[in-house]
Amino acid sequence: MRFLLDDEQRDFARSLDGMLTAADTPAAARAWAAGEHAAGFALRQRIGAAGVFALAAPEAYEGVGPSPVETAVAFVELGRHAVPGPLVETVAAVALLARLAALGVPEPAERSLPTLVGGGASATLTLPGAGPYALDADASAVLLAAGDGEVRLAPGHAEPRASLDPARRLARLLAGGEVVASGDAAADAAGRALDWAALATAAQSLGVGYALLDRTVAYVRGRTQFGAPVGSFQAVKHRLADVLVGLEFARPLVFGAAVSLRDGDQSAARVDLAAAKVATGEAVYGAARAALQLHGALGYTAEYDLSLWLLKARALRGAWGGVGRWRERVVAGG
């Protein structure tokens, strides 16, 4: 029993954090929101080169995984830096294709995994029971539609719709296209993809939460009213203390879910994943509300970068199905 990141995992987080800090990710997110994908694609390539997408793929497909713990480590950093694009979706698609290959359907993996794993292209997908929209389909090379007992390569997507988070655009995938798997294999692989999507989203969301907390702590230390930093007032302190309590108890659920996905039986892992999804949804949304309130009117402006994380917190809470649906899984036992 050693429920602690090892030195290598911490170094991985630090190196991603360093790379993303230097990359001006808020500017990339704003450009992405304006439909200019170049900076986001460049980020994706660097994230791929750092090995993030390889974590969900086995060695046979140029991966190093499956490594859910390291995937969680990476997505905390991607969330912390508000990196735009279908990153969770690409990981989930990699997991789906790798699972299909393991179940005797290797062709789609052979076709798409090398590019996705290396960061050369993105994938997006829709999964049964987890919402009708694919994220950033207009910026994705591979469009996977799972449902009705099959997995399809969709031939295209409908007009993307705006999300509350300007750096996210949502589109329905078009009907038809090549069916790459059906029956039990399709359902199994879609279930596995949802596991990875939930894990990566929970981790990304946690990173968003820590970014909101860190920025708000810095702000209330510097903002002076009544002759004192507003961060010295108990009402402000206690609200931020509650944010930290929420994040610090959501965090072990995220890493516990990652360990369960790697080592545990499937139903136990799915309870843990659902718990992580719910707990991060609540804690991070709570962090966003506190961050907005404690920044005052400044936080309510589109110009101020805080809005990048504020709105992402809201969007990620509902991604892959509402929190009620995930709670239902907890009570049902997986």
Binding site: V217, R221, P229, G231, K237, L244
Partner: peptide, 8 residues
């Protein structure tokens, strides 16, 4: 833990 200033 958060490093906020002491106050009343």
């Amino acid at each position: 833990l958060l490093g906020l200033p002491k106050g009343r």
